[in-house]
Design a protein around this nucleic acid. Sequence first.
DNA 1: TAAAAAGTTATACATTTGTTTAATAGAAAC
DNA 2: GTTTCTATTAAACAAATGTATAACTTTTTA
Lengths: 208, 208
Amino acid sequence: MKKTTRMKILEAASEVFGDKGYRAATVRDICKKAGVNQALINYYFNSKQQLYNEIFSSIVESVAGSYPLSDFVRPEMTKEEKLKGLVITMMNRAFGLHGIGGSKARLNILSREMIEPTDAMDMYLVTRISEIRAVGYAIVTEFVGDKMSDENKFRHVLSIVGQCMFPMFENKVLMKTDLMKEPTKDNMDIMVEHIYSFSLNALNGAVK
Amino acid sequence: MKKTTRMKILEAASEVFGDKGYRAATVRDICKKAGVNQALINYYFNSKQQLYNEIFSSIVESVAGSYPLSDFVRPEMTKEEKLKGLVITMMNRAFGLHGIGGSKARLNILSREMIEPTDAMDMYLVTRISEIRAVGYAIVTEFVGDKMSDENKFRHVLSIVGQCMFPMFENKVLMKTDLMKEPTKDNMDIMVEHIYSFSLNALNGAVK
DNA sequence: TAAAAAGTTATACATTTGTTTAATAGAAAC
DNA sequence: GTTTCTATTAAACAAATGTATAACTTTTTA
């Protein structure tokens, strides 16, 4: 299957945007990496900004589309299964991008956007986090009942979310210091299992 | 106490660098915000890069200098005290910056550097995380003994670290979705207490 | 196969950006 | 009070960067 010029640009641009960020990435860099003429970005995408938007949208789409929370946290499940489902969803959203093309470009772009969100990204994040907040709250409540304050329940949700998301931001340094392994499918499974049981123990301990 | 021109520039530059990142922040923006002539950045700091370096170094210094791990995790402590000491250290390093000048600028700059580290920052991070890794490993071992594999122990350390650091990256969205409160001194104390007891329960549950 | 469309190239253009310069104003020293 | 050093200003400069253009080549179409 032959690579079209359009695809070559998208691929190179993902790398460069991921490496350097939108601003520092230059059109000349991208075209050089793609091995195409400099004018072709404007020919195919109208502008650098629209090229970036297309890349970013596809990332958001694959993150949001692939792992709907309702598939992994369902009413008929036990509370333990729901907890694990929540962890699975978040870990896959965070690291599901990593595999594609063996490149961390997409993951880098997403991390950047989470630190310095555009308006669109900000809205998207608020929506996603709100969803996780609500589902997490319900699960925590199933474990600890109604004696715990809502505020404290939300802190529990945050602890679970934090365990899943933090490695996404700091993966490079964490791997270098051996606190985390390469996010392969197998290692992700092990991490899911760990975060699940760590959190399960925490929740069970909180209730007594 | 009168503000020197130098100080005005440093302050404005911190804001702008924090808001937009190094690249997108322009010398003209900074000088306008500081209310000084455009040439003065070069007069006082030689270049935009050196201005940034000075700001960044002072941030690193205050993070690293203020909370030495050895002050909060000491040999004579119980394992519970050590665990809490580790949490206190990380939370203060992450959010201790926030108070200064009522501005989140310094926190923003640090988050950015952690995502997209310069060489100097990379070395610094590796050093710090390695230290936390070693201390965390020792504490976890005190809780779970020697039956647990080292790899699993490190995953436990990562869970604790993740809870402390994640809110630093996503604080804006987390506050907007009510998963986190304004990081005031009081709220930080509550969060420390929570992360400590969440992790304590997890560790105690893991051992049995 | 000839005409039209799509793709590609080298180059130019206009803007933005960090930095420099030369002149001026103010403060300190003697 | 004059001189010398420091601070500030407006303007200019040179490099980088996103985009546009016009010529050329390849592919598609009829």
